[in-house]
């Protein structure tokens, strides 16, 4: 691996259609690579299986957010209207889960939504303000109409000539080196 100022980030193969990308992904998966990824302008149905990825964990963050929201809503109303300053209004009880429900329900959704978005950002390690791929000129079409597959140089199985041969066997449009 070249150790000069230009460090190799990985090999990038470009494809024309989602089907080609999917076949390539299946092949890379079966060869046991771990630090690799595919890029497409839209999510491709079935790609998770082709890459051997498991179900996303975002749901846990949603659950934690929603759970916190519901109980903080109930707790807040109990604290304010029953514990800290009980105020008689219309002969109604100081606290009841019935009238507290709309507020607790809304807070469940509010914090659940924040949990979802922040959880997604955390799992994806976003925002990421520097990415070698985004400096690469052909990669601009990954958000337009082309499909890419990257094998990172940091992968334990990476070997520039062997990996390049493997990528060539998937019939990409072209293969390029991405510099760090």
């Amino acid at each position: 691996m070249a150790q000069d100022s230009q460090k190799l980030h990985g090999l990038l193969a470009q494809f024309d259609t989602p089907a080609d990308l999917m076949h390539a992904a299946e092949m890379i998966r079966d060869h046991g690579y771990s630090r690799w990824d595919v890029f497409s302008p839209f999510p491709i149905h079935g790609m998770d299986d082709a890459m051997g990825l498991k179900n996303s964990k975002v749901g846990w963050f949603t659950f934690i957010g929603g759970f916190t929201g519901f109980f903080s809503g109930m707790g807040m109303i109990w604290y304010m209207n029953e514990f800290n300053y009980p105020l008689i209004v219309g002969g109604k009880p100081f606290f009841s889960p019935i009238f507290s429900f709309p507020v607790a329900y809304e807070l469940t959704i509010l914090l659940g939504a924040f949990g979802t978005l922040l959880g997604m950002a955390f799992l994806n390690r976003l925002p990421r303000l520097h990415n070698p791929l985004l400096k690469h000129s052909s990669f601009k079409r990954a958000t337009d109409d082309q499909f890419f597959l990257l094998i990172e140089a940091s992968d334990a199985k990476f070997d520039s000539s062997v990996t390049r041969q493997l990528l060539e066997s998937t019939h990409p449009v072209k293969i390029e080196e991405v510099q760090e």
């Binding site: 990824d37 890029f39 302008p41 996303s56 749901g59 939504a113 976003l126 303000l129 985004l134």
Partner: peptide
């Protein structure tokens, strides 16, 4: 810094589904 990575789309699609559900 979105790249369209499938590892990201996977979490993104789940998050989108959950937000729709919420």
């Amino acid at each position: 810094g979105w790249t369209g990575s499938n590892r990201h789309w996977r979490n993104y699609e789940k998050a989108y589904l959950l937000l729709a559900g919420l």
